[in-house]
């Protein structure tokens, strides 16, 4: 069993081990109809590796990512994330444990930025670092560097991103996702609204994370990006429920 050997210290063990997870939605507002999403999902991701989830829309790629992050509940199976002293099962972890796990172990870049009123772009990006306990000034400096790298005009840094364009918001979102030191990074179409130049920056960022020993799981709509970053593709259609 992978899980028993899984630990944060060793580099040969996976950072993420998904074991036979299944998910279905019950829609009570539509007469209690059940909507199977995925079943029997199993895969592992190792340090320095980027795994792409493949398959057509509706295959359950996003749902799997959300289950790994704990955003969706898991009906059966285990999702083991390496942590000291022992791996944590996201599927059964207490909310408090999950919050700590997200802060320390799992980063997540969603497709859409969830805007917080009145908080400026720079603070949005720096927040995960501040939560980790990094000095506010240092966090802001790193946030600025990242936003500059993603070509977000400096005049926007001090503005709340609510009024930004889709591409600008996504860059803020990417920066916020990549600024932390979490060893497991989940990417849900991080380049969907980006132009070629910024896509290239994101590809570089992913490469740097891999080089740093992080494990990444991503959904990449764009085949070029996927080919550039993914070490292997897990085909989700074989898990269809």
């Amino acid at each position: 069993m992978i899980a028993t050997a899984l630990s944060a210290a060793g580099t040969a063990e996976p950072l993420l081990a998904v074991e036979a997870i299944a998910k279905r939605f019950t829609l009570h507002l539509q007469g209690g109809v059940t909507l199977p999403v995925v079943a029997g999902v199993s895969f592992s991701v190792f340090p320095g590796e980027c795994v792409a989830l493949g398959g057509p829309s509706g295959a359950g790629k996003s749902s799997i990512l959300k289950m790994v992050y704990g955003n969706y509940r898991t009906d059966t199976g285990r999702i083991l994330v390496a942590d000291a002293p022992a791996p944590v099962d996201v599927a059964t972890a207490e909310p408090r444990r999950l919050i700590r796990l997200r802060r320390e172990r799992i980063g997540y870049v969603s497709q859409f930025l969830r805007v917080i009123p009145r908080v400026c772009a720079l603070d949005v990006v720096a927040e995960p670092l501040v939560a980790e306990g990094v000095d506010k000034g240092a966090a802001l400096a790193r946030a600025g560097a990242l936003l500059a790298r993603l070509n977000l005009p400096e005049r926007l840094w001090r503005l709340p991103p609510a009024t930004f364009s889709g591409g600008e918001q996504q860059r803020v979102n990417v920066a916020r996702g990549f600024i932390g030191a979490q060893p497991l990074l989940l990417l849900d179409e991080p380049t969907a609204s980006l132009d070629a130049a910024n896509r290239a920056v994101v590809i570089d960022l992913i490469a740097e994370k891999k080089a740093a020993g992080c494990a990444l799981v991503g959904i990449f709509h764009d085949a070029d990006t996927r080919d550039a970053v993914a070490d292997r593709v897990v085909d989700v259609t074989r898990f269809s429920a």
Binding site: F25, K66, G70, N71, Y72, R73, P95, L98, I99
Partner: peptide, 11 residues
Amino acid sequence: GLTDQVLDDPR
């Protein structure tokens, strides 16, 4: 449960 879990995947 976790806020985003309950709101995004209400049971």
